[in-house]
Design a protein around this nucleic acid. Structure first.
Lengths: 233, 233
DNA sequence: CGGCATAGTGTCCGGAGCACACGCGAGTCA
DNA sequence: TGACTCGCGTGTGCTCCGGACACTATGCCG
């Protein structure tokens, strides 16, 4: 451990943090990852995972590091969301936070409790406890982004297990977009894009006719993308 | 002037700046506002207007203030774009910048030189001089955002004078989207939205048949927006 | 008064979206 | 073991929207 030194600047500087909104899909429920705060301010309250940006790491790296540290998660998709910087958003003083937006396959991650015993848990996005700081605003912004984004970029697949049925996929869209979709048209459209690989497998352990499993073809998507193809709905 | 004091923190902090990409439309050319740097690093190079965020102002306020100070501009539209925070982006040390994206009616603004004699000027976005820092990346990001955004939000109007012809509007879209549009379809679509107020005036001083002038109806737009209306193309 | 430059306008066609209904396969339970 | 139930998986036809497309109108100028 290096000796603790202090750092002096000619002008005052805001502190800089990152905060992550991590979404996961649990059956028909959209979940967000929250961490229970152990210290003041807002001790005991739930908050988005996040922390201070180190001097030698990029913002993206900071977001990834915090997720790894606080919940043992490596998201399948991570992108910068928005930067929140109202002077009063943190009672300790001026703290500007760069918010990130992440998607994980819930099935693939067992949550690891944070090292410092703070608790991490998934909550339905429609029913979260009261959040610390301005994290409700951040969450709302992330939800909006998700809604906007699933329609024209195939990021929804990051929320599903590698093999999924078309019905699962449709449900995902219905949950995120908060409206029902026509089954026939949904399938026609998504299959017409030729981005799904039809597997020779079907669901297991269901008490009705088993649905065929599909896999998202990332390689094909990148090819089509280069050729000027536009994913939509 | 307060005595210059220094500021000490337990952990090092990045410096925080804002940088603004300001677009303006000059006939058929899309322009961006640049400032010539007076000091190192990159003295003499052109750069985006911007500067340090003060402790008591929000990020948006900082952006507005810098635009006012450096060019005497109050943009018709201003929104946060993206935050750039690679550790090496500024040779002086760690500087994280929140980039903004602004639109102004070029006709309404005569550029005011910055108080400290740094020069401000408009450049065609397709032909800028070499920029300081990572400002090319910021500009590219802003252009992308503009392209994406004009199609589903009526922000294009912020680039035109209050009264404009349909041809001007179409040209604007053609320039931004970098492709030609069909005149009849464009008019049909835009008029069908019922967002333009047809004025009893026509262009002046043209050596051919004068075109009718229109005005964008902000009030009607807000109403339709609440009713779930979607502006598109 | 003729030429020219831009304004302004309507139709047709194909593809996409949408509503609708039925057969299938597998598990369940009596 | 056979009948039932439940969700999977498909074809069709109608409607409507979006894109392609070419000519007439108007005003200025020389």
């Amino acid at each position: 451990m290096p000796a603790r030194v202090s750092h002096t600047y000619e002008y005052p500087r805001p502190a800089l943090t990152v905060d992550c909104v991590v979404f996961g899909l649990d059956e028909d429920d959209l979940k967000v990852l929250l961490i229970q705060r152990g210290v003041e301010p807002f001790a005991g309250r739930w908050a988005l995972p996040g922390g201070f940006v180190r001097m030698e790491e990029s913002l993206d790296d900071a977001a990834r590091r915090e997720l790894e540290e606080e919940a043992g998660i490596r998201p399948g998709h991570l992108e910068q969301l928005y930067t929140f910087g109202t002077p009063e958003r943190d009672p300790r003083g001026r703290v500007v936070t760069v918010a990130y937006f992440a998607l994980v396959k819930l099935s693939a991650h067992t949550l690891r409790a944070a090292t410092d015993a703070r608790e991490a848990a998934w909550f339905s996005v429609w029913d979260t406890p009261k959040l610390a700081f301005d994290h409700v605003d951040i969450l709302a912004t992330a939800l909006q982004r998700l809604k906007g984004k699933v329609r024209y970029q195939p990021i929804g697949f990051e929320l599903l297990p590698p093999k999924f049925t078309l019905t699962q996929l449709q449900r995902l869209y219905e949950v995120v977009l908060e409206r029902e979709l026509d089954k026939r048209n949904f399938r026609k459209k998504i299959l017409a894009m030729d981005l799904l690989e039809e597997l020779d497998e079907v669901e297991q352990d269901v008490s009705h006719r088993a649905a065929r499993l599909y896999r998202f073809d990332h390689k094909k998507y990148r090819q089509l993308e280069k050729a000027g193809f536009n994913f939509e709905l």
